[in-house]
Amino acid sequence: MALFELQNVSKHFGGLQVVSNLSLAVEQGEIVSLIGPNGAGKTTVLNLITGLYAPDAGKIVFDGRSIAGKDVHQITRLGIARTFQNLRLFLNMSIIENVMSAAYARTSANWFQIILRTPGFWKEEQHIRAVAEQKLAFFGERLVGYRFEQPAYSLSYANRRRLEIARALMTEPKLLLLDEPAAGMNPKETQEVTELIGKLRDELGLTIILIEHDMGVVGGISDRVIALDHGEKIAEGSFEAVATDPLVIEAYLGRNENMVRK
């Protein structure tokens, strides 16, 4: 059985049908890419999955249970984490605290333990910190050491994207949703991100849904690609098959020729 499934999900805003009757399934350990021209509804799909929007119709099943209608934080607790297309870090908190804060759902120290600084509290706190440092170490040297205590706003754009991934990892997800992780990165950094996504699957056993405009990233890493246009699935299959699909080419060419890069 698939780890994650969308069954006939629809969503509209006013008169605009943003997602219509979309079904898709993701197997444990798969990397699935969602592509499509601007405004196709990719981010909306992530918002539906994470509970920010409630679907008009259809079912969302994760790990064998329906999650549509649950609170956002409950869905995260069940094991779905995400990054945001327009970066939403806690800018005035330190880098390590950005990551540590995401351990909230996985920790349990109560008011008493916190105020009295009991041994149980210290143990948990040290554990959180160690895990957070380990998540940051995933990105090599870039976010470690003296950087831990720096505020998040002091980071470069690419590092902010990395920090967001680290923060998402801290929630201990099974399914990771990445919304354009390579946006605004240079070719070398883009290459790094591609490798990193592979590492996340291979070393942490994560299942990943990836939204990306950079066809290099999509082609390099995806097990399967799903193309959306106007909220509908227009193609699904291997990257080669989808990239050469006439409907997909038309969807991109019809609106924006620059989108087809490869």
């Binding site: 994470t50 920010l52 609170d71 956002v72 934080h73 995260t76 607790r77 984490a81 995400r82 945001f84 939403r88 870090l89 806690f90 800018l91 005035n92 908190m93 605290e97 950005n98 540590m100 804060s101 995401a102 351990a103 909230y104 759902a105 996985r106 920790t107 120290a109 008011w111 916190i114 948990e124 959180i128 923060r167 998402a168 801290m170 929630t171």
Partner: peptide
């Protein structure tokens, strides 16, 4: 964890919620 969550929510409520 509570103080960090408070400040996270001050910084960006939606992101805090999405981070559990």
């Amino acid at each position: 964890r509570i103080g960090r969550a408070w400040r996270a929510l001050r910084e960006d409520e939606l992101a805090a919620e999405a981070m559990g």
